[in-house]
Amino acid sequence: MTLLEVIDLWIAYDRINAVRGVSFAVGEGEIVTLIGANGAGKSTILRAISGLLPAARGSITFAGEDLLSLPAHLRTQRGIAHVPEGRGIFGNLTVLENLRLAAYGRSQAQFRQDLREVYRLFPRLAERRQQWGNTLSGGEQQMLAVGRALMSRGRLLLLDEPSMGLAPMLVREIFKVIQRLNRQGATILLVEQNANLALEVAHRAYILENGEIFLSGPSRELQHHPRVQEAYLGG
């Protein structure tokens, strides 16, 4: 079943058409990745889905509902959980407060329950729960950002460059968590510069160039596509 459907999406950013007529779909339970060079429009697409940027044209449907007519905070409440580029941790809130705020609109009991889940997934966050957000290391911030997305009970996780700036060991840890969440039923749309890694975990992939999709298919096939190997896999 299709959970997210994007049709002929155009996004103007700084008066440039950063995304030009992109169409793709994410099925329930899938991990789908958008791959492309810097400035190809990957993050821009995620920001238009979660409502941080307006779309110039096209449509975005989530679970059968038109998203473009909803403001960003209602899209979050409908089940879109966006982990933004740079993680967006609130440095003047504690780890626990960051998580509590992400569960905005949900009851204290539900919050307690999900908090245990997040702490089980990331024991590190439990240790640091009273620390200010701006005292966390890069890896801890990424854990907190993913933890926040889980607190909102998102049906669709939009992950923007989760590997950015992290040591290789931490990257593997984060990607293990991503796969684990997916096995537990989360649908994931992943944006990555590390194409190797992204194709490793994703079921399907779309390759973006200059704001347009130029290749798509199952990750296994794209991994061996000569054009992809040449441009993104250093092969």
Partner: peptide, 23 residues
């Protein structure tokens, strides 16, 4: 929760809607 939302807005307003909060 309202206080947290206020502090979050003062720190990084564009991100706050992603928490489901109406700025």
């Amino acid at each position: 929760l309202l206080g947290m939302a206020m502090r979050a807005i003062s720190y990084n307003r564009p991100i706050v809607p992603l928490m489901g909060v109406s700025v």
